[in-house]
Amino acid sequence: MAKNILLLSFVALTCSYLALAYEPKPLQDFCVADSDSSGVYIYIYIYIYIYITRVNGLACKDPLMVQASDFSFSGLHITGNTSNAVGFSAEAVNVVQVPGLNTLGISMVRLDYAPWGTNPPHTHPRASEILTVVEGSLEVGFVTSNPENRLISKVLQKGDVFVFPVGLVHFQRNVGHGNSVAIAALSSQNPGTITIANAVFGSNAPIASDLLAKAFQVDKKIVDQIQWKF
């Protein structure tokens, strides 16, 4: 009897699983994000089989309540404020600004650069990016994975396009004497951004300075100074 119970328990655990599921192509005309919901969780229990499914995206608004404003955004003509330490500004247009982007897997951003302004090395964990220079000239580049860590870089002029593969560290820098503007599209409604310097030196709680000193092969005092700035 004990053996049978043990066997049934093992089968139950084997047949139980957690599934993070999503449909890569919409099954309806649209799924405008419902601002009153942060997500949908469906729990279905069938005998000893347990299925836990999370819808990838936000809950859908009632289609009869959808308006044109759910699919539009105004403001990309406005110059961003680049009066900061890096001389750079980003105006995102994602599912937060345009609820109609929900489940469509796309977003965009306006990028403004002061003369010699820089979009510091960063990654988008959930999206590839395609960037078009609208004004000025930009030095752009990304770094391939270990162990090569090869820099692929180019100077772009007005009308030029460059692609940054998903997850790779990349950057842009204005190499002109005037302001530069770019428009980028990303393959996610919420691509995420991890700025390398902020993540490494400005984490909350901070990473141990002696660990970073060893990683960057510098004196611990230098790491302390950098962490203080962040």
Rank of each mutant, 00 (worst) to 15 (best):
V98S: 08
E129A: 12
S89A: 15
R54T: 15
I78R: 10
I152T: 10
S69H: 04
K158T: 12
F164M: 12
S107A: 15
M65D: 15
G80C: 06
S153H: 09
P99Q: 06
L101T: 06
L76P: 15
R54C: 12
V163N: 10
G167M: 06
G87T: 09
G75H: 08
M65P: 00
E139F: 04
Q157C: 02
N146E: 13
L76R: 07
P165Y: 09
E91L: 11
K61D: 04
V163P: 00
L64A: 12
V96W: 02
S145L: 05
G105S: 06
P99F: 10
P121T: 02
A114S: 14
L76Q: 11
V93G: 03
L101N: 04
N94I: 13
L104E: 07
L156G: 10
V143I: 15
R110T: 14
G75A: 09
S128R: 00
A90K: 04
A127N: 03
C60F: 06
I152K: 10
L76A: 04
S145V: 12
V55C: 01
F88M: 09
N102Y: 09
N81I: 07
V98T: 03
Y113G: 03
K61F: 00
M65H: 08
P165D: 11
S145F: 01
N84C: 01
F73R: 08
R150H: 11
I152E: 13
W116Y: 14
N56W: 04
L151R: 07
T82W: 02
Q67Y: 00
F71D: 12
I130T: 13
V133L: 13
L111G: 04
M108E: 00
H77T: 12
T79Y: 03
A127I: 05
V166E: 10
E139A: 08
E91Q: 13
D70A: 08
Y113R: 03
S145N: 13
G75W: 07
V143Y: 05
S153N: 13
P147H: 09
V66H: 03
K154L: 12
G141V: 06
G141P: 04
A127M: 07
G141K: 04
L58N: 08
L138F: 01
S89L: 05
R126A: 10
K154H: 13
V96M: 11
T79V: 11
M108I: 01
P125N: 06
H124S: 05
L151I: 14
Q157A: 11
Y51G: 07
K61I: 02
V109G: 06
L104W: 06
K158Q: 14
F142D: 09
L58Y: 15
M65W: 01
S153Q: 15
L104F: 15
L168Y: 08
L168S: 01
V109E: 14
G141Q: 07
P63E: 00
N102W: 08
P147Y: 02
L138M: 03
N102H: 09
F73T: 05
G167L: 05
A68E: 14
G100V: 11
I50T: 15
F71H: 11
R110Y: 04
K158F: 00
F164D: 09
K61V: 05
K61L: 13
G100I: 12
N146R: 10
T123R: 13
S72M: 12
K61P: 00
F71A: 14
A59I: 00
I50Y: 08
P63D: 01
R54E: 15
N119V: 00
S145E: 13
P121R: 05
A59H: 14
V155D: 14
Q97W: 03
H122R: 06
E139H: 13
N146C: 07
I52A: 09
